[in-house]
Every structure is written in structure tokens, then in C-alpha cells.
Nucleic acid binder design. Structure first.
Length: 557
RNA sequence: GCGCCCGUAGCUCAGUGGAUAGAGCGCUGGCCUCCGGAGCCAGGUGCGUGGGUUCGAUUCCCACCGGGCGUACCA
């Protein structure tokens, strides 16, 4: 357990005891203890921890909050000598100021846990499946996919850090209408490249990359597929093109630091009969009816706005049907939690997916879907126009070439998924202080530089008197370091990785302040030892945060 | 029309049922004969509008205004 959490628990016990005592002595009359909060106040003047229990009791007890607070404070028994000061303030807060002693236990813990610092065993190795990106294999990865990749991978790191067994998964939509369409586009380009004038399909994939793909294929097989049945020709072209596209996607993601445990083919659900089996199950449960030649799922029963087609009049299952079978497959593999990250353009799919999960007999709460808003690219203050249909878009690999993996990942995670993301290419590229990722990395490089300048090794924690660290910037840096486990836990369970980038910036900032006000390599040997270990603990904390973000922690820049 | 997301400082965005709402960028002025100045310190009339719930609302609820995205036998 983190030290901050254990201190909060101690305060909680003291308050609970005090409340019980007051009740027995008939000083406070209440039926049930309110669900109060122990929080770290924004204002330093309000102490280390603040409690709002008196305000919450006011109604039950029929006393003014401040009067209640006084009774609680009077009855507090501080056996451990934890408290330096207790104050009643504002509308009825009880503010606790602690003796600094507890803070000094933090650094040895960080140094001891090292790479594990920040993590916990909250998840008890429960299996979580995390599906993200799952881009159509008919093109390259665009900015939306890139945001999903950074978010998903960071979230995976966070969940692993708090003790979950995470499976990262990419669902390849290698079946259905769009693949048909892809085939038509490939065929048209193939024939065009070989000198035939054929019309390009209206709804086809216009991107340059399709032409490149076809050129590669021609280089290999030439005109072999010119005089052949169109269906066979398309089948061949699709297979070759998918291989190439999927490899490209996989490589791009790898160079973005994202590795998957499972690449799951939609086609396999068709081939294995999983889709028809799932449709049959839904039918047997009475959730399916026929209308106008198609099969419909009674999604309205499950809370969706309207019913949905699962098998078309032409007999082919819809994407929705395949996705239902896929999710059934996920739960059958034993995942207790299933998380999907989708772009905002898929949000209409959320209710019906949850509905389908419910229809299959699973708890829809087990499926969590993160909807992320769209990305806008800015260059020179102007919006960069993109359109997938026309093939005019910036790909992930181009982005990595332009701004680098570190900046790209940091920027994508910096904003809440709910928020539209304006990605400023110029800022992400800037190798200067205005770029937040450099600011954080600089702190890490600076620390390594100090440790290198030292020449000798670091002292042992048990040889050092941490109480010598009494400057304001030292105490605040230690407090910030101490916050990591709670930050990681909250970011992970709330599925909000963006808290991590903020924390990284705050930690770096706190370090820089400390650095400017305290000389680490000072003449006083004992003080130097304590400061060196503070700096080393900062290094560990920074490195671990950057690691969770998938951003490198350079030793020099 | 209906549904989801968003509206907070000049800009990009955090945040919270509570005590004086924050960060980065930009702008202005200061700071090492010393461990990396890619740094530090200082400078702020801002929660879209109107109701409601509450001891207390920027936060929760309702209506409205503005922006984005959905609303296919596409995915």
C-alpha cells in the first residue's frame, strides 16, 4: 500500500473512533456514519489533509458544522503522534497538519521498489481484454487510429501496473462489404496500371497507397491475373493487398511502441461458423425476427433506440453480427472485463453492442467502451484538411517521421478522450521548453547528468538521514513523488490515462524548482547524501511514468 | 427532429458537490563567476445562458444557445 493511502487510513480510523466516542457520550446523535472524504487540500494553508465529515453530519445531528467539528476534534486520540496541528476552518472542514516524519518513509520505499514503484496488486491478475485501433486493413493508419493506439497502449500499461493480466488485441476487419469494395478498387487500379481504361468505382478507395500496392503486386506477378475470371482476380488481389497492408499497420504500430498479443481476424468468425452459431443462439432466445427478407435483432428490448439488421436480405451477416460473435468469443475466452476504444464516429454502436452482450446473457457492465473524440491537425496555426475517401491524410508513420514517437504519444494522451484534440505539429516538433514532452525528459536527463558528475556510487538508504531534507522544495518534491501510486491507480480504474501526462509535468516542474533552490552536490556530506537519494528517487519516478506513457527517458539530450 | 460528446484565462486544455478554480503556450520583467538556462521566480476582472436540487453548484438535474459526431440491409 502506498504511504499516502496508509496515512489516510490512519486518519480515517482516528475520525471513526472519535465519532463513536462522541456518539456513546451522547455528544453527537447520528444513525449512520456519512461517507466522508479525506482529501489533500489545494491550499497549503489548509494543512496536509482535510476532512468534510462535519458538514455531512450537520443535517442528521442538527448542529452547525463547525460545532460538530469541534466535538470531533476534541475526541480525537492520536496515539502515534501523527498530528502536528488540527484546525477547524471554513464552513466546517477539519484540517490536519502532520508531523513531517511520515514523509521520510517515502524515499526508501521508492528506492526499494524501483521499477515496480507506482504499481500495485489491485487487479489481482484478473484477465482484461483491451481492443484498440482495429483499423480497416484497406488503408494506412490515420490520426484517429494513432490517438487510439497511444491511448490504448498507455491504458494497457496502466492496467498492468495495477495488477491486471492485460491482453492487447487488434480486430482485423478482413471481411464484409468494405473488403468487396477494396477488391473492386484494387481490380480497377490493376487494370489501369496495365494500360486498360476502366472506370474507378464511385465508393472505392481513392488513396495513392492503393496504386502503390497494386504496383508492388504487378512487379511480382505481372499480367498473370489479366485474363482470368474477375472474382478470382479480386480474391487474389485482396489477399495480396491485405497481407501488405496488415504488415504495414503492424510495423507502424511497432515503431510507435505498440505491440499486440492477439491479431484477430473477422474472417475467422465467418469460417468457423461462430457468427451463424451466435445468430442461432439469439434466435433461440427470441431476440430475432424477420422483416423484409432480413433478420433483425430486437435491440430496442435491450435499450437501444431501434432494432438492427444482423443478416441482410442477401443472406450475408452485417458487421454488427460479426462484432456480436467477436464479443461472445471474448467472454468465452474468460475475460471478466472487456474494454474497447472507439472513435466518436462509432458511438452510435455503443448501445447496441452493450444490448447484444446483454442478449447473450452477459452483464453489459463487463464491457466498457471508451469513445474518443476526433483529432484535428494544426500546422502553422492552420487546420490540415484530411479525408480518407480522397486519400488525403497524414499517416501514423509520417507523423512519427515528423515529430517523433515520444512527442506523438505524449500529445495524444495529454487530453481526455472526451475532448477534441488539436494536435499542434509545430509545438510537438519544437525541441525547446515550450514542448511539454521535452520539459519532462529534460528533468530526467538533468538528473542523470548530476549522478554522472558525482563520480562515486550513491549512499545506502539506511546510512542517510532523510530528515535533513527540510527545505520547502524538498518536501514538496517528496510529496509529489509519493503521489504516483494513487495517480496510477486512479488513471487506470477510471480509464483516464491523460492524468499521467499532467502528473509527469508536475513532477518535472517540482524537480526543476528544487534544483534551482537546492544544490545537490553540496559540501555538507550528510546533506549531499540525502539529496542524492531524493534525486535518485525522482529519477525512478520520472522514468516509471514515462515508461507507462511509452515515452523514452533519455539520459542525455 | 432524436441520441452522444464538448463549451473554463488571449490560445490549447486540466479539474472539483465545498474554503482564494489551475497548467502549458503566448506576452512582460527579473534570476547562476556554482551540479545541463531545453531551467527557475514574479505578473490573471475566466467556469456559454436561464431555472431547479443542496447548508453549499463551475461540478448534479431540466430547458435553451453554440460547436463536433452519429442517426445505413457501411464499418
Amino acid at each position: 500500500m502506498s504511504i499516502v493511502t496508509s496515512v489516510k487510513e490512519k486518519i480515517c480510523i482516528m475520525i471513526n473512533c472519535s465519532l463513536e466516542k462522541a456518539r456513546i457520550q451522547n455528544e453527537l446523535n447520528f444513525e449512520e456514519q456519512p461517507n466522508y472524504m479525506i482529501e489533500v487540500p489545494r491550499e497549503k494553508a489548509h494543512g496536509d489533509f482535510a476532512v468534510n465529515v462535519a458538514m455531512l453530519l450537520s443535517k442528521q445531528v442538527k448542529k452547525a458544522p463547525r460545532a460538530i467539528a469541534e466535538i470531533i476534534v476534541k475526541n480525537i486520540e492520536d496515539h502515534e503522534g501523527l498530528l502536528a496541528k488540527t484546525e477547524i476552518a471554513g464552513p466546517g472542514f477539519i484540517n490536519f497538519t502532520l508531523n513531517n516524519a511520515w514523509i521520510y518513509g517515502i524515499l526508501p520505499q521508492v528506492l526499494r521498489e524501483d521499477k515496480a514503484y507506482g504499481g500495485s496488486d489491485y487487479g489481482k491478475q484478473e484477465k482484461i481484454q483491451l481492443e484498440f485501433v482495429s483499423a480497416n486493413p484497406t488503408g494506412l493508419l490515420h490520426m484517429g487510429n494513432a490517438r487510439g493506439a497511444a491511448l490504448g497502449d498507455t491504458l494497457g500499461n496502466l492496467l498492468e501496473a495495477i495488477g491486471y493480466d492485460v491482453t492487447r488485441e487488434f480486430y482485423i476487419n478482413d471481411a464484409g462489404n468494405q473488403i468487396e469494395n477494396f477488391g473492386k478498387s484494387l481490380e480497377a487500379r490493376y487494370l489501369q496500371q496495365l494500360g486498360y481504361e476502366v472506370a474507378f468505382p464511385e465508393e472505392g478507395y481513392h488513396g495513392e497507397d492503393v496504386i502503390d500496392t497494386v504496383k508492388t503486386i504487378i512487379a511480382e506477378v505481372g499480367e498473370k491475373y489479366l485474363h482470368i475470371d474477375s472474382a478470382l482476380r479480386r480474391e487474389f488481389l485482396i489477399q495480396k493487398a491485405l497481407e501488405e497492408k496488415i504488415t504495414a499497420i503492424r510495423n507502424d504500430l511497432a515503431s510507435f511502441g505498440v505491440e499486440y498479443d492477439v491479431w484477430f481476424n473477422e474472417q475467422s468468425l465467418h469460417d468457423s461458423g461462430a457468427i451463424s452459431k451466435t445468430m442461432q443462439e439469439l434466435q433461440e432466445k427470441g431476440y430475432v425476427y424477420e422483416k423484409e427478407g432480413a433478420l433483425w435483432l430486437k435491440a430496442k428490448l435491450m435499450g437501444d433506440e431501434k432494432d438492427e439488421v444482423i443478416v441482410r436480405a442477401n443472406g450475408l451477416p452485417t458487421y454488427y453480427a460479426a462484432d456480436i460473435a467477436y464479443h461472445k468469443n471474448k467472454f468465452e475466452r474468460g475475460f471478466k472485463k472487456v474494454i474497447n476504444i472507439w472513435g466518436a464516429d462509432h458511438h452510435g454502436h455503443v448501445a447496441r453492442m452493450k444490448g447484444a452482450v446483454k442478449a447473450l446473457g452477459y452483464d453489459p457492465e463487463q464491457l466498457q467502451i471508451i469513445i474518443m473524440q476526433l483529432v484535428r491537425l494544426l500546422r502553422g496555426g492552420e487546420i490540415v484538411r484530411m479525408s480518407k475517401r480522397s486519400g488525403q491524410y497524414i499517416t501514423l508513420s509520417e507523423l512519427i517521421d515528423e515529430v517523433g514517437k515520444d512527442a506523438a504519444r505524449f500529445f495524444f494522451v495529454m487530453r481526455s478522450p472526451d475532448s477534441h484534440l488539436d494536435f499542434d505539429l509545430d509545438l510537438a516538433k519544437a525541441e525547446s521548453s515550450e514542448n511539454p514532452v521535452y520539459y519532462v525528459q529534460y528533468a530526467h536527463a538533468r538528473i542523470n547528468s548530476i549522478l554522472k558528475a558525482l563520480g562515486t556510487g550513491l549512499p545506502q538508504a539506511q546510512e542517510v538521514d532523510f530528515r535533513l531534507l527540510s527545505e520547502v522544495t524538498e518536501i514538496e518534491l517528496i510529496r509529489k513523488i509519493a503521489d504516483l501510486p494513487e495517480e496510477v491507480l486512479q488513471a487506470a480504474i477510471n480509464l483516464e490515462p491523460h492524468h499521467l501526462t499532467r502528473y509527469a509535468q508536475e513532477l518535472a516542474s517540482q524537480f526543476h524548482s528544487f534544483y534551482n533552490s537546492c544544490r545537490v552536490l553540496c559540501d555538507d556530506e550528510r546533506l549531499r547524501g540525502a539529496r542524492l537519494l531524493l534525486v535518485d528517487a525522482t529519477r525512478i519516478t520520472l522514468r516509471n511514468v514515462l515508461g507507462l506513457l511509452g515515452v523514452s527517458a533519455p539520459e542525455r539530450m
